[in-house]
Design a protein around this nucleic acid. Structure first.
Lengths: 344, 344
DNA sequence: TTACCGCACTTAATCGTTTAACTTAACTTT
DNA sequence: AAAGTTAAGTTAAACGATTAAGTGCGGTAA
């Protein structure tokens, strides 16, 4: 291990001078600087960031808490964080809560959940991270799960009543998808919703409704079905919808899994997609590319969300809190593939 | 920020005593201990791990370098690392190389690749990680990409000629899959290989071959096709195979994507799976669950690989290098779903 | 009585940096 | 010539922990 002191001794100067050279500070003659630079290179000096951090009280490290890293979408968000962090010399201290494996899918055990989160936060703070990004699972409101901390904190992919957050614009995305179908000539557009008690389900419903209204179309309640986000529920709801006396000519599913179920139902019922029925999904999940036909779906700005979250952290650290948006909503993008056409 | 010193002052003792209480060391009377514990709790003392690390030269942090976190399988491995790390009070400093986005898929630019890795390693060493785990993309040999370091280093999901590594047993997995088909009565078993220049493709071919030999079956060269791991290549090779004069009754694809292509080819050719043709995939990728029919496939021990890698790091730190296996190969597990039956 | 031991602490050095404050010499200004 | 300024360093105190070595005291053994 080569220390600053070793460099200083070899160069015949004080550690302060070496430090000044490393940080481009203070007054150091060109001659001395060159000499030190040379020795630095020769001895392959690598600064000990731990020591530096202790003195400067900055670690250039951001703590990332993710509810479950193996859950769909989390890696892309982390990737986005990583990209922005790296550009600014920051590292990522990752904490995976493994919430699904530990408390199941219903999150009813709020206490245990809170306990896990508190532990994670404490551990990160102990390691002196400069800020924390919390990655949720989109559908949940995490208000109150993290207690006040005196470092920058940004929530992404989840909702929080207070504090900074970064999400995508569910309502607008749903509006656009519906609008796209209408502009292609569809009038009988069905919606397969996810669980009704989630915020995104509400917002997406609103977007659907607003698009209908914009074109003076009446919302037909028998065209709105509620699934539970699963493939099977999409299959089931599609059968319901398509066996009505006046079936829809298009179905907007609130995620790609349910859209997959719709496609399977169509195969069974002998309905051709997109000739007889147009289908739009949501998420641009990888599998949507391997459906037959390839699914037209909404792509989520996941990397951008990560990058934006990190950017907020950096600006917060920079004391720019006045000028930072509390809740940022990023735009989704419709990926046009093969599952939509004009109605016959 | 509450420091050890603050606790000591409030308790009327020296910082040493407080430190001894915190670390359960030294001689401290029960009375003093209780008093300190109480104050520790009252002031919500959180040790500064940076300071502790500087003194102890241990950070309880493992650096994880992943070639691309958004690539299939990486999150599960990280999850496994995380689980084991957490159990032992370790944190994960994550470095995502984003190799695909930066140098494309061919990895021909070895220099740039090496440069990125060297930077990542240096950065982690600067932050004084106790060890490093390198997560590759399975198909590659990464020998020489990381230069010698004097800390524990474990490769997983990739091959390295020297050093510690953790992988799964490709050959045995392929042997088992083939054997399963044979035991169900198949004799005409085709193989759709991935790119032939990769280590796993070789090993899986060997497993396939050995299973045939075990049952005195002759390897029929026209039953072995080489794809490039993509859905489309699976589709194309399946068409080749199925339009031969004597088509196979079963196809083993070296990944789920190509198996998906096989299923699509079957739909087009009016071939019923599994009645007319049995199909086995490899990877247990999420999409395989949404194929029609649901795909029988090989599940990879990803979490276990992560956990095992972390375990090796810990044992290496513990000075147990004598007793640690250099290359660990973990078993895969066949997931039986709906795409295999006995031949007619 | 003296020597020794163990208990329950304290003292102070240390880990590898940073940085405010100081020093010294050379140069400028009046 | 005296005073002031500047350049190019050095000194030494932090940062918040750990820990070897030291201290003082009461008890025990020879």
């Amino acid at each position: 291990m080569v220390r600053l002191k070793d460099i200083a001794e070899k160069a015949g100067v004080s550690t302060a001078t070496v430090s000044y050279v490393l940080n481009n500070k203070g007054n150091v003659s060109e001659e001395t600087r060159k000499k030190i630079l040379k020795i630095l290179d020769e001895l392959e000096y690598k600064p000990n960031q731990i020591a530096k951090s202790l003195k400067t009280r900055k670690t250039s490290t951001v703590g990332v808490i993710v509810e479950d890293i193996t859950v769909f979408n989390a890696p892309e968000i982390i990737d986005g964080i990583n990209e922005c962090a790296e550009e600014h010399g920051f590292s990522i201290l990752l904490t995976n809560l493994r919430l699904y494996k530990r408390i199941g899918n219903n999150f009813s055990n709020v206490d245990k959940c809170k306990h896990l989160i508190t532990n994670a936060v404490d551990s990160l703070l102990s390691k002196q991270v400069d800020g924390i990004i919390y990655i949720g699972v989109h559908t949940r409101n995490v208000t109150g799960l993290i207690s006040e901390i005196d470092k920058p904190l940004v929530y992404t992919y989840c909702f929080a009543d207070s504090g900074y957050s970064v999400n995508y614009d569910d309502e607008f995305a749903s509006f656009e998808a519906t609008n796209y179908l209408i502009e292609r000539g569809h009038r009988k557009i069905a919606l397969i919703s996810g669980l009704i008690d989630s915020i995104p389900a509400h917002e997406r419903f609103n977007g659907y409704h607003k698009a209908l209204m914009k074109h003076q179309l009446i919302l037909n309640p028998s065209y709105v079905k509620t699934g539970d986000w699963s493939y099977e529920s999409g299959y089931k709801m599609a059968k319901d919808l398509l066996q009505q006396k006046e079936p829809p000519t298009a179905i907007l599913a609130m995620n790609d899994l349910m859209a997959g179920g719709v496609l399977e139902a169509c195969r069974e019922l002998g309905i051709q997609v997109p000739q007889d029925l147009s289908v739009i999904g949501f998420d641009n999940r990888e599998c949507s590319l391997y459906y037959t036909p390839k699914l037209t779906t909404m792509d989520l700005p996941l990397r951008k969300m990560g990058a934006k979250s990190m950017e907020k952290i950096l600006r917060l650290l920079n004391g720019e809190s006045e000028t930072i948006e509390m809740n940022t909503k990023l735009r989704c993008r419709l990926i046009v593939r093969e599952s939509v056409s004009s109605p016959r």
